[in-house]
Protein backbone atom coordinates (compact mmCIF):
# COMPACT_ATOMS: atom_id res chain seq x y z
CA UNK A 1 0.00 0.00 0.00
CA UNK A 2 2.67 2.40 1.07
CA UNK A 3 4.68 1.83 -2.04
CA UNK A 4 1.59 2.08 -4.26
CA UNK A 5 0.75 5.47 -2.74
CA UNK A 6 4.33 6.47 -3.23
CA UNK A 7 4.18 5.43 -6.88
CA UNK A 8 0.91 7.30 -7.40
CA UNK A 9 2.39 10.40 -5.85
CA UNK A 10 5.48 10.20 -7.99
CA UNK A 11 3.47 9.69 -11.16
CA UNK A 12 1.19 12.58 -10.21
CA UNK A 13 4.21 14.74 -9.59
CA UNK A 14 5.83 13.75 -12.84
CA UNK A 15 2.55 14.52 -14.62
CA UNK A 16 2.56 17.98 -13.04
CA UNK A 17 6.18 18.37 -14.02
CA UNK A 18 5.34 17.57 -17.64
CA UNK A 19 2.47 20.02 -17.51
CA UNK A 20 4.78 22.64 -16.05
CA UNK A 21 7.40 22.00 -18.68
CA UNK A 22 4.76 22.26 -21.39
CA UNK A 23 3.60 25.52 -19.89
CA UNK A 24 7.14 26.89 -19.80
CA UNK A 25 7.73 25.84 -23.37
CA UNK A 26 4.92 28.25 -24.29
CA UNK A 27 7.45 30.97 -23.50
CA UNK A 28 9.59 29.67 -26.31
CA UNK A 29 6.58 29.59 -28.64
CA UNK A 30 5.62 33.16 -27.73
CA UNK A 31 9.21 34.28 -28.09
CA UNK A 32 9.55 32.79 -31.58
CA UNK A 33 6.08 34.10 -32.43
CA UNK A 34 7.07 37.66 -31.60
CA UNK A 35 10.21 37.39 -33.69
CA UNK A 36 8.29 35.81 -36.56
CA UNK A 37 5.65 38.55 -36.51
CA UNK A 38 8.36 41.18 -36.39
CA UNK A 39 10.25 39.74 -39.32
CA UNK A 40 7.27 40.12 -41.67
CA UNK A 41 8.26 43.27 -43.54
CA UNK A 42 5.40 45.76 -43.59
CA UNK A 43 3.73 46.13 -46.95
CA UNK A 44 4.01 49.52 -48.47
CA UNK A 45 0.76 51.38 -48.81
CA UNK A 46 -0.94 50.14 -51.89
CA UNK A 47 -0.73 53.26 -54.01
CA UNK A 48 2.83 54.33 -53.47
CA UNK A 49 6.33 53.08 -53.77
CA UNK A 50 9.29 55.37 -53.43
CA UNK A 51 8.53 58.70 -55.03
CA UNK A 52 5.91 57.28 -57.35
CA UNK A 53 2.20 57.52 -56.70
CA UNK A 54 -0.16 55.09 -58.38
CA UNK A 55 -3.32 56.97 -59.14
CA UNK A 56 -5.23 53.90 -60.29
CA UNK A 57 -6.66 53.02 -63.67
CA UNK A 58 -7.24 55.55 -66.39
CA UNK A 59 -10.91 54.56 -66.67
CA UNK A 60 -11.62 56.19 -63.32
CA UNK A 61 -11.38 59.59 -64.95
CA UNK A 62 -13.60 60.55 -67.91
CA UNK A 63 -11.80 62.52 -70.60
CA UNK A 64 -11.74 66.20 -69.67
CA UNK A 65 -12.32 65.47 -66.02
CA UNK A 66 -10.08 65.22 -62.98
CA UNK A 67 -9.88 63.55 -59.57
CA UNK A 68 -8.04 64.33 -56.36
CA UNK A 69 -5.79 61.51 -55.10
CA UNK A 70 -4.63 61.45 -51.48
CA UNK A 71 -0.98 61.12 -50.69
CA UNK A 72 0.94 61.60 -47.45
CA UNK A 73 2.62 64.69 -48.86
CA UNK A 74 -0.79 66.19 -49.64
CA UNK A 75 -3.60 65.75 -52.15
CA UNK A 76 -2.74 65.47 -55.85
CA UNK A 77 -5.03 66.60 -58.63
CA UNK A 78 -4.98 64.29 -61.62
CA UNK A 79 -6.64 65.57 -64.79
CA UNK A 80 -7.21 63.55 -67.94
CA UNK A 81 -7.11 66.01 -70.81
CA UNK A 82 -7.02 63.58 -73.72
CA UNK A 83 -7.44 59.88 -74.41
CA UNK A 84 -4.08 58.93 -72.88
CA UNK A 85 -2.80 62.25 -71.61
CA UNK A 86 -2.92 63.04 -67.92
CA UNK A 87 -1.65 65.99 -65.95
CA UNK A 88 -0.86 66.00 -62.25
CA UNK A 89 -0.59 68.94 -59.89
CA UNK A 90 -0.36 69.53 -56.20
CA UNK A 91 -4.01 70.05 -55.27
CA UNK A 92 -3.19 72.65 -52.64
CA UNK A 93 -3.65 76.27 -53.68
CA UNK A 94 -0.46 78.32 -53.38
CA UNK A 95 -2.41 81.05 -51.60
CA UNK A 96 -3.69 79.57 -48.32
CA UNK A 97 -3.61 75.86 -49.17
CA UNK A 98 -7.25 75.22 -49.97
CA UNK A 99 -7.88 72.00 -51.86
CA UNK A 100 -8.38 72.88 -55.52
CA UNK A 101 -11.09 71.65 -57.86
CA UNK A 102 -11.18 71.02 -61.57
CA UNK A 103 -13.41 73.16 -63.71
CA UNK A 104 -14.62 70.90 -66.48
CA UNK A 105 -16.06 73.60 -68.70
CA UNK A 106 -12.96 75.66 -69.33
CA UNK A 107 -10.34 73.14 -68.24
CA UNK A 108 -8.96 75.20 -65.39
CA UNK A 109 -8.10 74.47 -61.78
CA UNK A 110 -10.08 76.66 -59.44
CA UNK A 111 -9.90 77.42 -55.77
CA UNK A 112 -13.22 77.37 -53.92
CA UNK A 113 -11.98 79.68 -51.18
CA UNK A 114 -10.93 82.91 -52.88
CA UNK A 115 -11.69 82.29 -56.50
CA UNK A 116 -8.09 81.82 -57.60
CA UNK A 117 -7.63 79.96 -60.87
CA UNK A 118 -4.81 78.11 -62.60
CA UNK A 119 -4.59 77.00 -66.19
CA UNK A 120 -3.86 73.45 -67.29
CA UNK A 121 -0.14 74.16 -67.03
CA UNK A 122 -0.37 75.35 -63.45
CA UNK A 123 0.08 79.04 -64.20
CA UNK A 124 -1.91 81.53 -62.19
CA UNK A 125 -4.77 82.80 -64.32
CA UNK A 126 -6.54 84.86 -61.80
CA UNK A 127 -6.91 85.81 -58.15
CA UNK A 128 -4.67 85.77 -55.12
CA UNK A 129 -2.33 82.76 -55.66
CA UNK A 130 1.22 84.14 -55.64
CA UNK A 131 2.90 81.24 -57.41
CA UNK A 132 2.08 78.72 -60.11
CA UNK A 133 0.98 75.27 -59.00
CA UNK A 134 3.73 72.67 -58.61
CA UNK A 135 3.32 70.25 -61.48
CA UNK A 136 4.29 66.58 -61.37
CA UNK A 137 5.16 64.41 -64.29
CA UNK A 138 2.46 61.86 -64.94
CA UNK A 139 2.55 58.82 -67.15
CA UNK A 140 0.09 56.26 -68.39
CA UNK A 141 1.31 52.70 -68.56
CA UNK A 142 -1.05 49.81 -69.29
CA UNK A 143 -3.98 52.10 -68.65
CA UNK A 144 -2.62 52.81 -65.18
CA UNK A 145 -1.66 56.29 -64.04
CA UNK A 146 1.73 56.80 -62.43
CA UNK A 147 2.79 60.12 -60.94
CA UNK A 148 6.37 60.97 -60.05
CA UNK A 149 6.25 63.15 -56.98
CA UNK A 150 9.91 64.08 -56.64
Amino acid sequence: METEKEVARTSRRSFLDVLGAAFLSLWGVAFLGVIYAYLGAPRRRENESGGTLRAGSLDRIPIGDAIVVQHESGPVLVARIAEVEVLAFSALCTHVKCVLRWNRENQTIVCPCHGGAFDASGNVLYGPPPRPLPKYSAEVRDAQIFIRLT
Binding site: V34, A37, Y38, G40, A41, P42
Partner: peptide, 8 residues
Amino acid sequence: DVTLGWFV
Protein backbone atom coordinates in the same frame (compact mmCIF):
# COMPACT_ATOMS: atom_id res chain seq x y z
CA ASP B 1 4.28 49.88 -39.42
CA VAL B 2 6.15 46.74 -38.38
CA THR B 3 4.12 44.23 -36.35
CA LEU B 4 5.26 44.50 -32.72
CA GLY B 5 8.06 46.80 -33.86
CA TRP B 6 7.13 49.26 -31.13
CA PHE B 7 7.52 46.47 -28.59
CA VAL B 8 10.98 45.45 -29.77
